[in-house]
Amino acid sequence: MGAVASLGELRGFLDELLLADRFAGDQNGPFAHYRADAPVARLGVALEPKGELAAWAHRERLDALVLHRPWGFAGDLPVLAYHGAFDERLTTGFNPNLAAALALCEPAVLGYKEGRPLGMIGDVPSVTWEAFRARVAALFGGLEGVYGAPAGDVSRVCVVGAMRPPLVYEAAERGAQVYLTGQYRRGAARAVLETGLAVLELGHARSERWGLGVLAALLREAFPDLSVSLYAAER
């Protein structure tokens, strides 16, 4: 297969998708053997260099890798790495792709970290708590935990990449009934109890795997002739 993209073109697409310019260099590197004009026909995506990643990359005859956590990778392939940017744009931050998957309309920012949105809040089509919980579990392949339950049907939810009392209170004040996050924090338990918010704990690893699958799909859509392989450990 001939080259269908350059590493520079792929980096440009990913930088724009993940708003990478908002992050310090150490959040998005290193770029191993990076050369902008390096041709890429076969691309691999993975969370981190664990297991048989290097052997898998060799078997798949990959030209480059996209990694979430690149540290410790010992291969000789070019690497595009996105750490903080991936977390905030493709897991439980202000994530337009997750908003679409949840049918969350016109997401608004909820909370900030260093000037960047921490999460989003918006309306969803009204549905029973059981149906909404099942939809989220199906989307992510399960849930780490379920805390509380809303008083009625679910019609407004938030997704936040942190769980602190001020964020819980703000979510409740802005009408959220359900708080989706990667990890339930015991320090926010009183705020959850006082506000009556239901919490769905997705699990950090589970939300990362979901984001990686979305990233692979977006790359295939943007570069239809590019072969994009998802590392089996993250499937």
Rank of each mutant, 00 (worst) to 15 (best):
D123K: 08
M120T: 04
L53N: 11
G44E: 09
W56Q: 10
P39W: 06
R59C: 05
L118C: 07
L67D: 09
F86V: 07
A46P: 11
A57H: 10
W71N: 08
T91L: 03
V40R: 04
H68L: 00
G115T: 10
L90I: 07
D37Q: 15
V109G: 00
A85W: 03
A101L: 10
E88Q: 14
I121V: 12
G122T: 07
C105V: 15
G122Q: 06
N28Y: 02
W71T: 02
P78V: 04
G72K: 14
Q27F: 03
P107S: 01
E52N: 15
A108C: 08
R35Q: 15
A100C: 05
F86N: 11
D87S: 05
P96I: 01
L43Q: 03
P70Q: 10
L65E: 11
Q27H: 09
A100V: 08
I121K: 01
A101Y: 00
V45F: 13
L77S: 10
A57G: 12
W71F: 14
A41W: 03
G29N: 12
P96W: 01
A64F: 13
E60F: 00
F86D: 11
R89Y: 00
P70T: 02
P107V: 04
L77N: 10
E114S: 10
A74E: 15
T91Y: 00
R89W: 01
P117F: 03
N95G: 02
V45K: 05
F86T: 05
N97L: 09
A64D: 10
A81F: 11
L98G: 04
L98T: 05
P39G: 11
N95F: 02
R69A: 06
K50G: 13
Y34N: 04
P96E: 08
A57T: 11
G72D: 13
A99L: 07
F73T: 07
A54I: 07
A36D: 12
E106V: 01
L62W: 04
A54L: 06
A99F: 01
H68Y: 14
E88G: 03
T92V: 14
G29Q: 13
H33N: 14
M120A: 07
E114Q: 11
D123M: 01
E106T: 10
A108F: 01
W56A: 06
G44A: 07
R35E: 15
D123R: 09
E60A: 14
L98R: 05
V109S: 04
R89A: 02
G122L: 04
A55M: 01
A64W: 12
R35D: 14
E52A: 08
L98V: 02
A64P: 13
V66P: 13
D37A: 15
V45P: 13
L104V: 07
L98D: 03
N95P: 01
A41V: 05
Y112K: 01
G51T: 14
D63G: 14
G75C: 03
R35I: 00
E88H: 09
F86I: 04
L62S: 12
P39C: 11
Q27E: 15
A100N: 00
P39I: 11
V45I: 02
K50C: 01
L43I: 06
L53T: 08
Q27V: 06
A101K: 06
R89M: 01
G122W: 05
E106S: 06
F94H: 09
Q27I: 00
A64G: 09
H68Q: 10
A85I: 08
G75V: 06
G84R: 14
E106C: 03
A38D: 08
D37S: 15
P49L: 05
P70F: 12
A103R: 12
A100H: 02
L102I: 05
